[in-house]
């Protein structure tokens, strides 16, 4: 498939935004159970929600560049019963709305306790709003990934690993972002977030490697024989039915050399997993290093790596329609 940059930016930006929100809420839950010092509502939770919203909004804007008719985008909420794309179109703004409410509740100090849990802990509106937003956040990961995972003949995508990896990669990127953000806004927390970022990045590494291994061993179900229904071992295409190419020859081929495809894999494995893990581990070993500079650099490097990872995710998928356009590939 030809990777579309609008979709690459959409999925990576909202992944980071979602992960950052999860990180904020995780921090709040830890503080709720007195495992971490409580943070300032405005400068940490509200400001963090604003950063998360900025990423989500950036992703939303990028998605519009994918559409031929962005002015009709509202129509795409119609088929939520059958279409994962439609579901994503509903869940993304809903999640953004909840993050806005969550951040707003923190900003305006809506923390009158609503009820008390046994043990004397007071549950306030921010905790409830955050729980709803967390649910929507995971729904959004599932919707985004299922857009690809539900296409059964794109065998590279049609696996639960797609959903797992979108979630883990978004989480990893968001927690690295949270550690960089906390280095500025909550100096006690970078270690906590960096620790979680290491765990999530390591898990994402396992998941992504598993999908790379799986995809390398895939056997395509379709062949030229099933495509044109002629059972002969030697079939060569002589003409694709178009001289200067067509939508089919442009949309479904990434057009890059084999060497490029071979090079991009280690490139993103290094930048998304190996280098960030090393940097974060170094920071954990020597907490004085866990400053905004190192953590922001880690986030940016990993984000660039994720762009390459997502590019490869799309490019790697071989669409069965390509069997009808073999003179191109």
């Amino acid at each position: 498939m030809r990777p579309a940059f609008s979709v690459i930016f959409l999925t990576t930006l909202i992944g980071a935004g979602q992960g950052l929100f999860l990180a904020l809420y995780t921090g709040q839950l830890y503080a709720f159970f007195d495992l971490l010092p409580a943070q300032d509502s405005r400068s940490f939770y509200a400001a963090g929600s604003a950063v998360s919203l900025a990423f989500l909004g950036g992703g939303l804007i990028a998605s519009f560049f994918h559409l031929g008719h962005p002015e009709r985008a509202w129509r795409s909420a119609a088929q939520w019963r059958t279409s994962w794309l439609s579901r994503e179109v509903i869940v993304l703004p809903a999640f953004m709305g909840m993050v806005l409410l969550y951040g707003g509740a923190h900003w305006f100090g809506w923390n009158t306790p609503l009820f008390e849990l046994p043990g004397g802990r007071h549950v306030d509106p921010t905790l409830i709003l955050g729980a709803v937003a967390t649910l929507l956040c995971f729904m959004l990961f599932v919707c985004t990934a299922m857009i690809y995972a539900c296409l059964r003949f794109l065998q590279e995508w049609h696996t639960p690993l797609t959903v797992i990896n979108y979630t883990l990669l978004g989480g990893a990127s968001g927690f690295v972002l949270a550690s960089a953000f906390s280095a500025i806004a909550a100096p006690q927390l970078p270690g906590f977030y960096a620790g979680w970022a290491i765990i999530l990045t390591a898990l994402a590494f396992l998941g992504r490697t598993a999908s790379l291994v799986r995809n390398a061993r895939l056997r395509p179900k379709s062949s030229t024989r099933t495509a044109i229904g002629i059972k002969h071992p030697h079939i060569v295409q002589k003409s694709p039915g178009a001289m200067g190419g067509s939508f089919n020859t442009r949309e479904f081929f990434h057009g890059k050399s084999r060497a490029f495809m071979r090079a991009i894999k280690p490139a993103f494995l290094l930048t998304v997993f190996v280098i960030p893990l090393t940097l974060l581990a170094m920071g954990m070993a020597n907490p004085s290093m866990l400053g905004a500079a190192l953590l922001s650099a880690t986030f940016i490097l990993q984000y660039l790596g994720l762009l390459a990872e997502r590019w490869f995710f799309f490019a790697e998928a071989k669409h069965p329609q390509n069997l009808y356009y073999q003179c191109v590939s």
Partner: peptide, 26 residues
């Protein structure tokens, strides 16, 4: 009149039977 030109359906057709109209964007 309803199509937003997202091309998702062309990904979902194994036969490559759908083509986007690059001028009308549907």
């Amino acid at each position: 009149d309803k199509c937003i030109g997202c091309k998702y359906c062309s990904w979902a057709c194994p036969y490559g039977a759908r083509e986007i109209d690059e001028q009308q964007k549907v």
